[in-house]
């Protein structure tokens, strides 16, 4: 592959990544905002209790609990959905990079990017569920 072609593909990849990140963050912020308003309407008068840490894994905190909250469409679930979209944004970016390096047939960087992706999925699926 010529240097020129690689540079052009890199340029396109950068544009796609830029848009992915922007759309991801804005979507996530919008969802969190909706959930947040709903939460304040419902429990704004309650007393906050973040001074002490409540257990290492109450069911609503891990990924399967989050999925249940989202399905129930309660305010916690909506905020958590927004936070998941936020966490997914950089992961999506890594996935796009794998595809882009595959199009460039750049084996070295396909491998590097797949390693990063594997580490990310290990963290999310190995611990979050």
């Amino acid at each position: 592959m010529t240097e020129n072609r690689q540079a052009r593909l890199d340029q396109r990849l950068e544009v796609i990544i830029g848009y992915t990140l922007r759309i991801g963050v804005l979507t996530a912020a919008a969802i969190v905002l909706i959930g947040g308003v709903l939460y304040l309407v419902q429990s704004g008068a309650a007393v906050p209790r973040y001074h002490t840490f409540h257990t290492a894994a109450t069911p609503s905190d891990n990924l399967s609990g989050i999925v249940r909250n989202i399905q129930a469409l309660n305010s916690y679930g909506i905020i958590q959905l927004g936070l998941l979209v936020l966490i997914a944004t950089p992961i999506l970016r890594v996935i796009f990079s794998v595809i882009a390096f595959a199009l460039e047939r750049d084996v070295l960087y396909i491998v590097a990017t797949l390693i990063v992706l594997a580490v990310l999925l290990y963290s999310l699926l190995g611990h979050g569920v």
């Binding site: 409540h54 894994a57 905190d61 990924l63 966490i87 990063v116 990310l120 999310l124 611990h127």
Partner: peptide, 14 residues
């Protein structure tokens, strides 16, 4: 990306 790698463990531990 670095922070996303910690996020799974943070979520799992509440």
């Amino acid at each position: 990306v670095t922070a996303a790698a910690s996020a799974g463990i943070y979520l799992g531990n509440g």
